Simulated scan of single mutants.
Amino acid sequence: MTVTNRFRALMVDQAEDSFSVDIKELSLDDLPEGEVTVRVSYSGVNYKDGLASIPKGRIVESYPMVPGIDLAGTVTESSDSRFRPGDPVIVASAELGVSYYGGFSEMARVPADWVIPLPSGLSLKEAMILGTAGFTAAMSVQRMEENGLQPDRGPVLVTGATGGVGSTAVAMLAKRGYTVAASTGKAAEHDYLKSLGAEEILSREETTKEEKRPLLRARWAGAVDPVGGKTLSYLLSTTRFGGSVAVSGLTGGTEFTSSVFPFILRGINLLGIDSAHVTNAYRREVWNRLADDLKPEKLLEGTGVTEISLDELPQALTSILKGGVRGRTVVKL
Protein backbone atom coordinates (compact mmCIF):
# COMPACT_ATOMS: atom_id res chain seq x y z
CA MET A 1 0.00 0.00 0.00
CA THR A 2 1.43 3.33 -1.08
CA VAL A 3 1.52 5.92 1.67
CA THR A 4 2.46 9.54 1.03
CA ASN A 5 4.41 11.30 3.74
CA ARG A 6 2.40 14.54 3.56
CA PHE A 7 -1.28 14.82 4.48
CA ARG A 8 -3.87 17.32 5.76
CA ALA A 9 -5.33 17.63 9.24
CA LEU A 10 -7.37 20.04 11.33
CA MET A 11 -5.24 21.39 14.17
CA VAL A 12 -6.12 23.51 17.18
CA ASP A 13 -3.46 25.46 19.04
CA GLN A 14 -3.42 27.79 22.01
CA ALA A 15 -0.87 30.32 23.17
CA GLU A 16 -1.07 32.78 26.05
CA ASP A 17 -3.16 35.30 24.13
CA SER A 18 -4.37 33.46 21.03
CA PHE A 19 -6.32 30.41 19.89
CA SER A 20 -6.39 28.97 16.37
CA VAL A 21 -8.29 26.36 14.38
CA ASP A 22 -6.55 25.67 11.06
CA ILE A 23 -6.22 23.00 8.42
CA LYS A 24 -2.51 22.24 8.13
CA GLU A 25 -0.24 19.97 6.17
CA LEU A 26 1.59 17.46 8.36
CA SER A 27 4.02 14.62 7.82
CA LEU A 28 4.07 11.10 9.25
CA ASP A 29 6.91 12.26 11.50
CA ASP A 30 4.47 14.69 13.18
CA LEU A 31 2.23 11.86 14.40
CA PRO A 32 2.57 10.53 17.95
CA GLU A 33 4.09 7.18 18.76
CA GLY A 34 1.93 4.09 18.39
CA GLU A 35 1.96 0.57 17.00
CA VAL A 36 -0.70 1.07 14.29
CA THR A 37 -0.78 3.66 11.49
CA VAL A 38 -4.13 4.19 9.76
CA ARG A 39 -5.20 5.90 6.57
CA VAL A 40 -8.38 7.58 7.80
CA SER A 41 -11.46 7.25 5.62
CA TYR A 42 -14.08 8.86 7.87
CA SER A 43 -14.44 10.56 11.22
CA GLY A 44 -17.55 11.69 13.08
CA VAL A 45 -18.43 15.10 14.52
CA ASN A 46 -19.32 14.95 18.21
CA TYR A 47 -20.19 17.59 20.80
CA LYS A 48 -16.88 16.85 22.52
CA ASP A 49 -15.10 17.72 19.26
CA GLY A 50 -16.92 21.04 19.24
CA LEU A 51 -15.59 21.75 22.72
CA ALA A 52 -12.08 20.96 21.50
CA SER A 53 -12.42 23.71 18.88
CA ILE A 54 -12.94 26.57 21.36
CA PRO A 55 -10.45 28.05 23.85
CA LYS A 56 -12.59 27.41 26.93
CA GLY A 57 -13.79 23.93 26.00
CA ARG A 58 -11.70 22.31 28.76
CA ILE A 59 -11.34 19.11 26.74
CA VAL A 60 -7.89 19.26 25.13
CA GLU A 61 -5.11 18.34 27.54
CA SER A 62 -2.17 19.73 25.55
CA TYR A 63 -1.54 21.84 22.46
CA PRO A 64 -1.16 21.69 19.54
CA MET A 65 -3.81 18.98 19.02
CA VAL A 66 -5.62 17.30 16.15
CA PRO A 67 -9.22 16.86 17.43
CA GLY A 68 -11.57 14.07 16.47
CA ILE A 69 -12.49 11.49 19.09
CA ASP A 70 -13.16 8.74 16.57
CA LEU A 71 -11.98 7.47 13.19
CA ALA A 72 -12.42 4.59 10.78
CA GLY A 73 -9.91 3.61 8.15
CA THR A 74 -7.41 1.11 6.82
CA VAL A 75 -4.18 -0.01 8.48
CA THR A 76 -1.09 1.01 6.50
CA GLU A 77 1.55 -0.14 8.98
CA SER A 78 1.53 -2.15 12.20
CA SER A 79 4.16 -3.47 14.58
CA ASP A 80 1.44 -5.38 16.47
CA SER A 81 0.66 -8.88 15.18
CA ARG A 82 -3.08 -8.40 15.73
CA PHE A 83 -3.27 -5.97 12.80
CA ARG A 84 -1.93 -6.06 9.27
CA PRO A 85 -1.82 -3.56 6.40
CA GLY A 86 -5.17 -3.51 4.67
CA ASP A 87 -7.24 -4.30 7.78
CA PRO A 88 -10.33 -2.08 8.19
CA VAL A 89 -10.43 -0.74 11.75
CA ILE A 90 -12.19 1.63 14.15
CA VAL A 91 -10.66 3.79 16.87
CA ALA A 92 -13.20 5.55 19.08
CA SER A 93 -12.98 7.46 22.36
CA ALA A 94 -10.02 6.41 24.53
CA GLU A 95 -7.76 9.52 24.58
CA LEU A 96 -8.12 10.22 20.86
CA GLY A 97 -8.48 13.90 20.01
CA VAL A 98 -7.98 14.91 23.63
CA SER A 99 -4.41 14.03 24.59
CA TYR A 100 -3.53 12.13 21.41
CA TYR A 101 -3.77 13.31 17.80
CA GLY A 102 -7.26 12.34 16.64
CA GLY A 103 -9.46 11.53 13.69
CA PHE A 104 -9.66 14.88 11.87
CA SER A 105 -6.61 13.90 9.86
CA GLU A 106 -5.96 11.93 6.69
CA MET A 107 -3.46 9.78 8.61
CA ALA A 108 -3.35 8.68 12.25
CA ARG A 109 -1.06 6.64 14.48
CA VAL A 110 -2.46 5.05 17.65
CA PRO A 111 -1.70 2.45 20.33
CA ALA A 112 -2.77 -1.02 19.21
CA ASP A 113 -4.89 -1.54 22.33
CA TRP A 114 -7.24 1.23 21.16
CA VAL A 115 -7.90 -0.37 17.78
CA ILE A 116 -11.11 -2.32 17.10
CA PRO A 117 -11.40 -4.55 13.99
CA LEU A 118 -14.33 -3.35 11.87
CA PRO A 119 -17.16 -5.77 12.71
CA SER A 120 -18.77 -7.71 9.89
CA GLY A 121 -22.00 -5.94 9.05
CA LEU A 122 -20.63 -2.39 9.17
CA SER A 123 -18.91 -0.31 6.50
CA LEU A 124 -16.27 2.25 7.43
CA LYS A 125 -18.75 5.06 6.75
CA GLU A 126 -21.51 3.40 8.79
CA ALA A 127 -19.06 2.97 11.66
CA MET A 128 -18.50 6.73 11.74
CA ILE A 129 -22.16 7.60 11.25
CA LEU A 130 -22.44 5.75 14.55
CA GLY A 131 -19.06 6.82 15.97
CA THR A 132 -18.62 7.70 19.62
CA ALA A 133 -22.20 9.02 19.75
CA GLY A 134 -23.59 5.71 18.54
CA PHE A 135 -21.26 3.78 20.81
CA THR A 136 -22.41 5.90 23.75
CA ALA A 137 -26.06 5.26 22.87
CA ALA A 138 -25.43 1.52 22.51
CA MET A 139 -23.51 1.41 25.78
CA SER A 140 -26.42 3.23 27.46
CA VAL A 141 -28.86 0.59 26.20
CA GLN A 142 -26.56 -2.26 27.17
CA ARG A 143 -25.96 -0.90 30.68
CA MET A 144 -29.72 -0.49 31.23
CA GLU A 145 -30.36 -4.03 29.98
CA GLU A 146 -27.64 -5.31 32.31
CA ASN A 147 -29.71 -3.68 35.07
CA GLY A 148 -32.97 -5.35 34.10
CA LEU A 149 -34.47 -3.24 31.32
CA GLN A 150 -36.63 -5.22 28.89
CA PRO A 151 -39.20 -4.13 26.30
CA ASP A 152 -42.10 -5.37 28.42
CA ARG A 153 -41.05 -3.21 31.41
CA GLY A 154 -42.53 -0.04 29.88
CA PRO A 155 -41.61 2.98 27.73
CA VAL A 156 -38.09 4.39 27.50
CA LEU A 157 -37.48 8.14 27.17
CA VAL A 158 -34.62 9.56 25.11
CA THR A 159 -33.70 13.19 25.83
CA GLY A 160 -31.86 15.50 23.43
CA ALA A 161 -33.33 13.19 20.84
CA THR A 162 -32.27 15.00 17.67
CA GLY A 163 -28.57 14.95 18.63
CA GLY A 164 -26.05 12.24 17.85
CA VAL A 165 -26.53 10.12 20.98
CA GLY A 166 -30.26 10.79 21.11
CA SER A 167 -31.14 10.00 17.51
CA THR A 168 -29.15 6.76 17.45
CA ALA A 169 -30.67 5.72 20.80
CA VAL A 170 -34.20 6.27 19.47
CA ALA A 171 -33.50 4.09 16.42
CA MET A 172 -31.72 1.39 18.43
CA LEU A 173 -34.42 1.10 21.08
CA ALA A 174 -37.17 0.98 18.46
CA LYS A 175 -35.34 -1.81 16.64
CA ARG A 176 -35.07 -3.74 19.91
CA GLY A 177 -38.83 -3.58 20.35
CA TYR A 178 -39.04 -0.89 23.04
CA THR A 179 -41.78 1.71 23.20
CA VAL A 180 -39.78 4.89 22.68
CA ALA A 181 -40.59 8.45 23.73
CA ALA A 182 -38.37 11.31 22.61
CA SER A 183 -37.77 14.73 24.14
CA THR A 184 -36.64 17.66 22.01
CA GLY A 185 -36.76 21.43 21.94
CA LYS A 186 -37.07 21.42 18.14
CA ALA A 187 -40.75 21.38 17.16
CA ALA A 188 -39.88 21.03 13.48
CA GLU A 189 -38.16 17.68 14.05
CA HIS A 190 -41.11 15.65 15.35
CA ASP A 191 -41.62 13.84 12.03
CA TYR A 192 -37.92 13.00 11.86
CA LEU A 193 -38.00 11.43 15.33
CA LYS A 194 -41.13 9.46 14.49
CA SER A 195 -39.40 8.16 11.36
CA LEU A 196 -36.67 6.77 13.62
CA GLY A 197 -39.23 4.96 15.77
CA ALA A 198 -40.39 7.40 18.46
CA GLU A 199 -44.06 6.88 19.36
CA GLU A 200 -44.40 9.92 21.65
CA ILE A 201 -42.74 13.35 21.59
CA LEU A 202 -42.22 15.47 24.70
CA SER A 203 -41.29 19.15 24.61
CA ARG A 204 -38.14 20.39 26.27
CA GLU A 205 -40.31 22.52 28.56
CA GLU A 206 -42.03 19.43 29.94
CA THR A 207 -38.75 17.80 30.92
CA THR A 208 -37.12 20.91 32.42
CA LYS A 209 -39.86 22.64 34.41
CA GLU A 210 -39.20 23.23 38.09
CA GLU A 211 -41.00 20.87 40.50
CA LYS A 212 -41.10 21.08 44.28
CA ARG A 213 -42.12 17.47 44.77
CA PRO A 214 -39.26 14.94 44.90
CA LEU A 215 -41.33 12.28 43.11
CA LEU A 216 -43.74 12.72 40.21
CA ARG A 217 -45.93 10.19 38.43
CA ALA A 218 -43.79 7.19 37.49
CA ARG A 219 -43.69 6.95 33.70
CA TRP A 220 -40.43 5.58 32.35
CA ALA A 221 -38.87 2.14 32.63
CA GLY A 222 -35.60 3.69 31.52
CA ALA A 223 -34.07 6.79 29.99
CA VAL A 224 -31.10 7.64 27.79
CA ASP A 225 -29.95 11.12 28.84
CA PRO A 226 -27.16 12.99 27.03
CA VAL A 227 -28.53 16.29 28.39
CA GLY A 228 -28.15 16.37 32.19
CA GLY A 229 -29.09 19.48 34.16
CA LYS A 230 -32.79 20.03 34.88
CA THR A 231 -33.69 17.22 32.50
CA LEU A 232 -31.88 14.72 34.71
CA SER A 233 -33.83 16.03 37.71
CA TYR A 234 -37.06 15.34 35.82
CA LEU A 235 -35.94 11.82 34.87
CA LEU A 236 -35.02 10.88 38.43
CA SER A 237 -38.45 11.93 39.65
CA THR A 238 -40.45 10.14 36.90
CA THR A 239 -38.63 6.81 36.45
CA ARG A 240 -40.56 3.70 37.46
CA PHE A 241 -39.60 1.33 40.25
CA GLY A 242 -36.38 -0.53 39.40
CA GLY A 243 -35.80 1.55 36.27
CA SER A 244 -32.52 3.02 35.05
CA VAL A 245 -31.34 6.41 33.84
CA ALA A 246 -28.18 6.29 31.71
CA VAL A 247 -26.59 9.76 31.71
CA SER A 248 -23.81 10.55 29.25
CA GLY A 249 -23.83 14.28 28.56
CA LEU A 250 -24.11 17.83 29.84
CA THR A 251 -25.65 19.91 27.05
CA GLY A 252 -28.34 20.98 29.54
CA GLY A 253 -25.86 21.83 32.29
CA THR A 254 -23.63 20.09 34.81
CA GLU A 255 -25.78 20.56 37.91
CA PHE A 256 -29.09 18.93 38.85
CA THR A 257 -31.34 18.73 41.88
CA SER A 258 -32.74 15.55 43.40
CA SER A 259 -33.21 13.73 46.69
CA VAL A 260 -32.70 10.24 48.04
CA PHE A 261 -36.38 9.34 47.44
CA PRO A 262 -36.07 8.09 43.83
CA PHE A 263 -33.36 5.71 44.99
CA ILE A 264 -34.80 4.42 48.29
CA LEU A 265 -38.52 4.47 47.40
CA ARG A 266 -38.34 3.43 43.75
CA GLY A 267 -34.98 1.66 43.67
CA ILE A 268 -33.87 3.32 40.47
CA ASN A 269 -30.38 3.07 38.99
CA LEU A 270 -28.41 6.16 37.94
CA LEU A 271 -25.87 4.86 35.43
CA GLY A 272 -22.91 7.01 34.41
CA ILE A 273 -21.85 6.30 30.83
CA ASP A 274 -18.15 6.91 30.16
CA SER A 275 -17.14 5.67 26.72
CA ALA A 276 -13.49 6.66 27.08
CA HIS A 277 -12.24 4.31 29.78
CA VAL A 278 -14.06 1.00 29.25
CA THR A 279 -11.96 -2.07 28.55
CA ASN A 280 -11.11 -3.03 24.99
CA ALA A 281 -13.06 -6.29 25.43
CA TYR A 282 -16.21 -4.42 26.48
CA ARG A 283 -15.71 -1.95 23.64
CA ARG A 284 -15.58 -4.80 21.13
CA GLU A 285 -18.70 -6.35 22.61
CA VAL A 286 -20.66 -3.12 22.16
CA TRP A 287 -19.33 -2.55 18.63
CA ASN A 288 -20.34 -6.08 17.67
CA ARG A 289 -23.88 -5.30 18.85
CA LEU A 290 -23.79 -2.09 16.79
CA ALA A 291 -23.24 -4.29 13.74
CA ASP A 292 -26.03 -6.66 14.77
CA ASP A 293 -29.08 -6.27 17.02
CA LEU A 294 -28.41 -2.58 17.80
CA LYS A 295 -27.63 -1.52 14.23
CA PRO A 296 -29.99 1.44 13.64
CA GLU A 297 -30.87 0.95 9.98
CA LYS A 298 -33.52 3.69 10.09
CA LEU A 299 -30.82 6.20 10.99
CA LEU A 300 -28.15 4.84 8.65
CA GLU A 301 -30.50 4.78 5.66
CA GLY A 302 -32.44 7.95 6.47
CA THR A 303 -32.02 11.68 6.08
CA GLY A 304 -30.32 12.28 9.43
CA VAL A 305 -26.78 11.89 8.05
CA THR A 306 -24.70 14.75 6.62
CA GLU A 307 -21.35 14.10 4.91
CA ILE A 308 -18.83 16.94 4.82
CA SER A 309 -15.24 17.54 3.76
CA LEU A 310 -12.32 18.52 5.97
CA ASP A 311 -12.66 22.10 4.71
CA GLU A 312 -16.28 22.23 5.90
CA LEU A 313 -15.42 20.87 9.34
CA PRO A 314 -14.78 24.16 11.23
CA GLN A 315 -18.32 25.35 10.48
CA ALA A 316 -19.78 22.00 11.56
CA LEU A 317 -17.94 22.24 14.88
CA THR A 318 -19.46 25.68 15.45
CA SER A 319 -22.93 24.39 14.57
CA ILE A 320 -22.84 21.42 16.94
CA LEU A 321 -22.04 23.71 19.88
CA LYS A 322 -25.06 25.85 18.99
CA GLY A 323 -27.38 22.86 18.82
CA GLY A 324 -27.71 23.28 15.06
CA VAL A 325 -26.97 19.67 14.08
CA ARG A 326 -29.60 17.01 13.46
CA GLY A 327 -28.57 13.37 13.54
CA ARG A 328 -24.98 12.63 12.59
CA THR A 329 -22.33 14.50 10.63
CA VAL A 330 -19.41 12.52 9.15
CA VAL A 331 -16.18 13.90 7.73
CA LYS A 332 -14.89 12.16 4.59
CA LEU A 333 -11.10 12.20 4.65
Results as ranks from 00 to 15, higher is better:
residue 129 I to D: 06
residue 19 F to H: 09
residue 103 G to D: 08
residue 41 S to I: 04
residue 247 V to Y: 00
residue 312 E to N: 11
residue 298 K to R: 14
residue 219 R to C: 06
residue 322 K to V: 10
residue 16 E to C: 07
residue 28 L to W: 06
residue 95 E to L: 12
residue 124 L to K: 10
residue 127 A to Q: 04
residue 239 T to L: 10
residue 292 D to H: 11
residue 242 G to S: 07
residue 224 V to I: 12
residue 247 V to P: 01
residue 238 T to P: 00
residue 40 V to I: 14
residue 235 L to C: 04
residue 39 R to F: 03
residue 35 E to H: 09
residue 146 E to H: 12
residue 24 K to L: 12
residue 213 R to G: 08
residue 86 G to N: 10
residue 106 E to W: 06
residue 331 V to R: 00
residue 264 I to K: 05
residue 265 L to N: 11
residue 267 G to I: 08
residue 94 A to T: 15
residue 130 L to H: 02
residue 258 S to T: 14
residue 211 E to H: 14
residue 61 E to P: 11
residue 241 F to C: 08
residue 20 S to H: 12
residue 193 L to V: 01
residue 8 R to H: 15
residue 233 S to H: 08
residue 237 S to T: 08
residue 183 S to V: 08
residue 291 A to Q: 01
residue 286 V to C: 04
residue 136 T to P: 09
residue 88 P to Y: 02
residue 62 S to W: 10
residue 268 I to V: 14
residue 263 F to N: 07
residue 288 N to P: 05
residue 248 S to V: 01
residue 253 G to P: 04
residue 148 G to L: 11
residue 308 I to A: 13
residue 329 T to D: 03
residue 148 G to F: 10
residue 18 S to D: 15
residue 198 A to L: 05
residue 203 S to W: 02
residue 219 R to Y: 04
residue 153 R to L: 09
residue 172 M to H: 08
residue 243 G to Y: 07
residue 299 L to K: 05
residue 116 I to T: 15
residue 9 A to G: 13
residue 271 L to M: 11
residue 130 L to F: 03
residue 276 A to S: 15
residue 26 L to I: 03
residue 210 E to G: 05
residue 286 V to T: 03
residue 317 L to G: 02
residue 278 V to P: 02
residue 192 Y to R: 11
residue 274 D to A: 13
residue 120 S to C: 11
residue 225 D to T: 02
residue 119 P to D: 05
residue 155 P to L: 03
residue 268 I to M: 07
residue 106 E to S: 12
residue 309 S to R: 12
residue 238 T to W: 01
residue 309 S to F: 13
residue 327 G to Y: 06
residue 308 I to K: 05
residue 298 K to A: 12
residue 249 G to T: 08
residue 201 I to W: 07
residue 247 V to K: 00
residue 129 I to L: 10
residue 282 Y to N: 09
residue 266 R to A: 06
residue 316 A to S: 14
residue 152 D to F: 09
residue 322 K to I: 07
residue 203 S to Y: 07
residue 42 Y to F: 15
residue 59 I to G: 08
residue 20 S to A: 14
residue 89 V to I: 15
residue 264 I to F: 13
residue 84 R to Q: 15
residue 11 M to L: 14
residue 242 G to V: 12
residue 201 I to S: 02
